[in-house]
């Protein structure tokens, strides 16, 4: 018996992820001056950093597709597609087409806006690509999409946790303090507090590190432990959003948690 069936879980994943995409699109549109040709994300400049294999044969198409007007329009379409996905009870073909649209736009975004993107955008791409494939194939394929997403989120946390574990600065909390002391990605009051009492940083740093490494256990753990791990992970992303300003993680990573719950229930 499963806590949720594959279709309900898929709907939950796509709605949470779509809410994140709505917010992300609006944030890009709010800062659209930077997308102008004269701006830091201007196409003339971004074009220089694009792999040459994508440039030569498609140059004129790319120029048309990624200029200021087109890219703001694509962001508008991205917002609209994600907004429509929030509404309840669409038919599978419509949800499939919206997921395909968002997956394609996520790939285009990886090319056009790469320097402003992070792991949350990577996860968003995986979510909509996997859901789109699941919708298009129909039947039991939705379940495979959920297993894929649960696998990716476990891989993401485990890799990040393992890479942190190998660095002494993460283990003793000093990296946490230096990040929080910075203005760019920090919260200076908390950074100053931890700087004056470095021992206080060891516990949260180790907690993050261990929780990330142990995250895959959620798939095989009893429900109480699984919900405990997911709750800690959600709290971590809320803290990262509030303290570091990286708010897109708050949506895209938790969007995959229903897939973890589904897979854990399937294994029980």
């Amino acid at each position: 018996m499963t806590l949720l069936d594959a279709d309900s879980t898929t709907r939950l994943v796509e709605r949470i992820a779509a809410a994140g995409v709505c917010l992300s699109s609006l944030e890009w549109l709010a800062a659209r001056a930077d997308l102008r040709d004269s701006g830091a994300f201007g196409w003339k400049l971004v074009r220089l950093s694009i792999p040459s294999v994508l440039q030569a044969p498609y140059q004129s198409l790319a120029d048309r597709m990624f200029g200021y007007r087109s890219v703001t329009m694509l962001l508008g379409v991205r917002f609209l597609a994600a907004f429509l996905l929030l509404a309840p009870n669409y038919s599978r073909p419509l949800r499939a087409s919206l997921c395909v649209t968002l997956a394609v736009l996520a790939v285009l975004g990886r090319v056009r806006l790469a320097l402003g993107m992070n792991s949350a955008d990577q996860m968003s791409l995986l979510i909509f690509a996997a859901l789109a494939l699941g919708h298009l194939a129909g039947g039991k394929a939705a379940s495979i999409s959920l297993w894929f997403l649960a696998g990716q989120v476990c891989l993401a946390y485990f890799t990040a946790g393992w890479l942190k574990f190998r660095e002494r600065g993460w283990r003793n909390g000093s990296f946490l303090i230096t990040v929080l002391c910075s203005r760019t990605f920090g919260a200076r009051r908390i950074g100053a507090l931890l700087k004056s009492r470095p021992a206080l940083a060891v516990l949260p740093a180790m907690a993050v590190l261990i929780a990330e490494i142990l995250f895959p256990v959620a798939v095989i753990a009893p429900p109480t432990i699984m919900f405990g791990i997911l709750g800690c992970a959600l709290l971590f992303h809320l803290s990262v959003g509030a303290l570091m300003g990286l708010n897109d993680f708050t949506w895209t990573f938790p969007a995959t948690y229903p897939a973890v719950i589904y897979c854990a229930a399937c294994l029980r």
């Binding site: 792999p51 294999v53 994508l54 790939v107 990886r110 090319v111 790469a114 792991s119 990577q122 996860m123 791409l125 995986l126 990716q152 891989l155 993401a156 946390y157 890799t159 990040a160 890479l163 942190k164 190998r166 660095e167 600065g169 993460w170 990296f175 230096t178 990040v179 002391c181 910075s182 203005r183 760019t184 990605f185």
Partner: peptide, 19 residues
Amino acid sequence: VLGLIPAWRMFTPRPDTED
């Protein structure tokens, strides 16, 4: 070239600490 394979770094190995 399209960035389809994720690299789950998430502030590793060293986070940005300078302004």
